[in-house]
């Protein structure tokens, strides 16, 4: 085990770095997509509502792997050629964003009616009302489910290995193919994923929850 880590540790570390990069970029895509589609679902303008619904249903109704292959292999036929790295985090982000959109929508609808009425009474513009009153309160409500979603997102990034993005899973597969030390190769990968999820992402989300709650004076 020790000699395994000495030989392959650096490569696993590089893989973990690629996984982390995929995670961060996919998380950004997911946040943007979730916010856009979540707000879109609540729009008074029906084409926007329809577009958001179609996006959410398509990405929640099919598998991430199907979406990944479609974006990587089929999209080029439409003239949109994405390199594998970009195709990877974009698919994962769009997939998770569709789940996030429902969280965003639910959280916005869960903001008490009085808050909406008060901002009407102060004759705030819709944009200002959303930005200053509704979204900050919705954010506190949506953070706990977002924490779970971020773990799902990390797990989703493992699939980008299947379009040859050299992430942790890809490195583990390569080491396994070269040495047949499957238990060590995949075991080490599983442990690293676990450490990322349990000791980095989860504590970070908890912390964010506390900070946001305090800023709203609800700690």
């Amino acid at each position: 085990m020790w000699d395994f880590l000495q030989t392959y540790g650096p490569r696993l570390f590089d893989g973990a770095l690629v996984t982390s990069a995929q995670f961060v970029l996919a998380a950004l895509v997911a946040c943007a997509a979730a916010l856009a589609a979540g707000l879109g679902r609540l729009s008074a303008f029906w084409p926007v509502r329809g577009l958001a619904t179609v996006y959410i249903e398509i990405f929640r109704g099919t598998s991430l792997l199907v979406q990944l292959y479609w974006i990587f292999f089929v999209l080029p036929l439409f003239g949109v050629s994405l390199p594998k790295f970009e195709a990877g985090f974009l698919s994962v982000g769009l997939n998770v964003g569709a789940y996030g959109a429902e969280i965003v929508r639910g959280a916005i609808q869960a903001v008490p009616k009085g808050q909406w009425e008060a901002s009407y009474a102060l004759s705030m513009s819709p944009a200002k009302r959303m930005r200053r009153i509704i979204l900050p309160q919705a954010l506190v409500l949506m953070l706990p489910p977002w924490g779970n979603l971020m773990i799902e997102l990390l797990k989703g990034t493992a699939l980008v290995a299947l379009i040859s993005v050299p992430d942790l899973m890809f490195v583990a597969k390569q080491i396994n193919g070269a040495t047949f030390r499957s238990a060590e190769a995949f075991g080490a990968a599983l442990l690293i994923y676990y450490i990322l999820a349990r000791f980095l992402i989860t504590p970070a989300m908890r912390r964010l929850e506390r900070v946001m709650a305090r800023r709203l004076g609800r700690a």
Binding site: I151, K155, F186, L190
Partner: peptide
């Protein structure tokens, strides 16, 4: 259970498929 939930299913599939024969 927390471990199983927070690690990717694909890696678990590979692990079981390749490590099984070795034990």
């Amino acid at each position: 259970l927390e471990f199983i939930r927070s690690t990717p299913l694909v890696v678990q599939i590979f692990f079981i498929f390749y490590v099984g024969p070795q034990v």
